[in-house]
Design a protein around this nucleic acid. Structure first.
Lengths: 214, 214, 214, 214
DNA sequence: AATGAATGAGACTTCATTCAT
DNA sequence: TATGAATGAAGTCTCATTCAT
């Protein structure tokens, strides 16, 4: 096995000392990131296998080689974008728990579009793609369930702590809160000039406090 | 002149004696409706000009003939679906005004998916398409602005009537309420088994009353 | 029959008092002229029936109505362009006969491109079209024969007048002279900056005089 | 590694063991040759990408794959046909220089149509295509300039050798001689029965000698 | 006579996919 | 492992042509 640093045709240099498995993993990840960029710019249907390979600095044929079919790539890509988004969201609101953690997570949610617009665009493209692309629908359904349940857990913690009214339906509120977050950002994506996310976030949080606390 | 209904090659029955303008208008409308069906089933990118023509009972080439390019069809289709959705929504909540009218409109909104699932799917496909398709983005941006403004007007009416608190930001609430409606339905579309729209609607309305009324 | 001046859909006014045959003839002629313009701009294959009708100020369907098929239009158009060109050429060199008439006709030939560039472009498009379009080949073959024979007649007149050498092959010279004229203009059409037609014409005539006269 | 000639799906025999670059180069060349055949038969506008691929023994999609667009194929094809024609013409008149070389080249020119009718037809189709196809016009403009300059060089050599009159305009004569050659063949292409190229060639050369020599 | 609605064939082009190297 | 050559299936779009008005 050749171990010296070597020039690959795509023009990228890669580190020596990798095993083939490591190289493969990196190539897959770079292809997924390139694909995520394409999604952010042109939507989910704009992806072509060749373009994803070329943007990642590899050959136009490599995505086919790794992901076999376009559907498999889309499926992996949906999961990758969702995971990346979730990881970022959680990192930004790390440590916060209970109802206060929920409020903090909501604040973070309204800040992410300005911080990471491409990631958010890609994420919403995945949400949109769930409507039609079976390879993605399952991922999004699971995401929705998890996310709404997390929100509901924050509310339940608030109830248990005696801070929130106990006639609240935490599951329904979980869905509604998630809906408001997503729907707000969806409007911002279409018309960022008109939608003031900071103002929306502040209003939403004070609305929640008024409707949920005792 | 032949006046009896006659069979034409496309398989549709049409009345004789139409003017050419009438024939053309009907053909355009039928093509748009067929295209909306396709959108509801397979999403915005699933449309092909040929399929739209064939489903409408015409030739595969007619949509090209009328709409010139696919983009032009998409643009017209986005406007058509939005108009149809709005017309239906308003018809269902006719006569209600003020803050009560807003609450009624919200109730209607949560009922529409069960009443007209295809229309709602098509509508949400348009919303999703706005992310990537410039021809649609403008339509959706206008729709969002109008819709949020209508909601805000209902809130302003409630404030003026002394029923709602006067420290509310009606515009922000308009966006947030629209967001919650859209986001709820988006989750239902992905997993209708899990999302109970009736329950969501009831929770949302009581939440609103608690957060907005004096 | 309505005789008053009337507005037609194309936007053109036409004179009253025509018979239908006259109106039809005018419409045909206007369609042919519009088609000739298209040929001059975009070549022989750029013609579409609809475009010819629209440019002539009529409906897009009228050329079909008159000329039945595209081939029939092309055939009529080839003849029309050739006739127009010949008429112009003869008008410009009217009255000249014999060998001097030939020289005058040659001078005129080199002047026409600057005087009537569109006509000359269309004419050369017809010549080019003869290579592939059977509907035109016959017209051009006849034209070539006639033109070369006319040139030969001028030479024969010069011989008979004792002005030209009598060992000349008039028919071969007819073809060669026609070839030089056409070939010169063909080069000018491709690169009018580089080809100085006036200089070419002067050189050609003095060359001819030296090679043909006693 | 398999080395024996093997039958591939397109119906052509190819050797195994080629590098990919060799395979591609051969495929491109064969597609261009097939396209040149089509041009010779049906003119420049008769080319379709699919037909070029099929005639070359490949799939109907390959020309698109290589040449991207039809215009790019036409452009490459124009250059290819011109190069092939020039190479043949020069090979046939190899070694001849000066004014005698020019006369020999002219003799060869009048012989080529009978020797290589398809090549000559294709070549004249390119000349004709320059009138309307920008992708070809540049190639033909360069060709015309080069060819006329070569002829002029032969005349200048004759003047320098004291064999031709020194009041000749070599550049104008270069254009005129090229014009006569092209124009003669153009007439032959339309009506080969009537045009006797051998006789034309003999007449043209004796005419030239009379008009150019001292 | 004239318009223009509608059809259908054919071309270009893009890609997923397979396969040779 | 990785490249890229080659195929073939759609899809868009343009037009000649037919036909109802």
């Amino acid at each position: 096995m050749r171990r010296a640093a070597q020039r690959v045709s795509g023009g990228a240099f890669r580190q020596a000392g990798r095993t083939q498995a490591e190289r493969r993993d990196e190539a897959e990840r770079r292809i997924l990131e390139a694909a995520a960029d394409i999604v952010a710019e042109g939507g989910f249907e704009a992806i072509t296998l060749a373009e994803a390979g070329a943007r990642a600095g590899y050959s136009r044929g490599l995505p086919s080689h790794y992901f076999r079919t376009r559907d498999d790539l889309l499926s992996a890509l949906g999961a990758y974008i969702v995971e990346t988004f979730q990881a970022r969201r959680r990192a930004n609101a790390a440590g916060a728990t209970g109802f206060d953690g929920l409020l903090e997570a909501i604040r973070v949610y309204f800040e992410m579009p300005l911080d990471r617009p491409n990631m958010v665009r890609a994420f919403h493209a995945v949400l949109a793609g769930a409507l039609n692309t079976p390879a993605i629908a399952a991922t999004v359904a699971r995401l929705n369930h998890t996310s709404a349940t997390e929100v509901a857990a924050g509310i339940r913690a608030g109830i248990a702590a005696g801070r929130l009214r106990d006639d609240i339906d935490p599951d329904a509120q979980g869905v509604l809160i998630l809906a408001a977050l997503r729907g707000s950002i969806a409007q911002w994506l279409v018309d960022p000039e008109r939608i003031d996310l900071e103002r929306l976030g502040a209003n939403f949080i004070s609305t929640l406090e008024r409707s949920l606390t005792k």
